[in-house]
Simulated scan of single mutants.
Amino acid sequence: QILGPNDEYLCRTFPEVKNFWAKPDVLALGHWGQINLEGRGQRAEGRREESFFHKLLSQTVPDTQPCYLEPEEFERYIQQGYQATATLNQGIISDPSTSQYCRWQYEIQPVYGWGNQRSIQQSTAGWLSFLQIFEPGWQILMAHGLASGWIDWNGKRYEFTNAPAYGEKNWGGAFPQKWFWANCNSFSDTPDLALTAGGGRRGVLWWMESVAMIGIHYQGKFYEFVPWNSQVSWNIQPWGKWQMQAQNSHYEVELTGTTDLPGTPLRAPTENGLIFCCRDTLQGQLNIELREKKNNQQEIILKAHSSACGLEIGGGPWNNAWQSH
Rank of each mutant, 00 (worst) to 15 (best):
N116H: 10
F222N: 03
Q132F: 02
N183V: 09
S230N: 08
E159N: 09
L205Y: 14
I216R: 11
L131S: 08
W138H: 12
N183S: 07
W179R: 08
G145K: 01
A143T: 01
W206E: 02
Y101G: 09
G137Q: 05
Q177R: 15
S94G: 02
S148M: 01
T196R: 07
V232I: 15
P227R: 02
N162H: 05
G200F: 03
Q177N: 14
I133E: 06
G126L: 00
A163N: 05
S129I: 04
L193Y: 03
S129M: 15
S119M: 08
N170V: 10
F225D: 12
E224Y: 04
G149V: 03
F187E: 04
A182T: 14
A125T: 14
L193D: 05
I93G: 03
Q100S: 13
S99Y: 07
K156L: 05
Q177F: 15
V232P: 06
I120S: 10
A125S: 15
S230T: 06
A174F: 04
G198H: 10
V111Y: 15
I93K: 08
Q90V: 10
S99M: 14
D95R: 01
K178D: 01
G145M: 00
Y158C: 01
S186Q: 14
P136H: 06
G172D: 14
Y166S: 03
A147T: 01
R202K: 14
Q219Y: 10
N235A: 13
Q132N: 12
W150V: 00
K221P: 10
Y218N: 08
A163I: 02
I151A: 02
H144F: 01
Y101L: 02
V226Q: 11
Q132W: 14
N235Q: 14
T196A: 14
P136W: 13
V226I: 06
W179Y: 09
G173I: 09
W114V: 01
L141N: 04
W104Y: 15
G172I: 04
S210A: 14
P191F: 05
W104A: 06
G198N: 09
A212M: 07
S188V: 13
W138K: 00
G115I: 02
T190D: 11
M208E: 02
N229A: 02
S233P: 05
R118D: 12
L205Q: 11
T98N: 06
W127F: 06
T161E: 12
G215D: 08
W114A: 02
S148G: 11
L195Y: 07
F130Q: 04
P96I: 15
Q231T: 13
N229C: 01
R118T: 09
Y158V: 02
H217L: 03
Q139E: 00
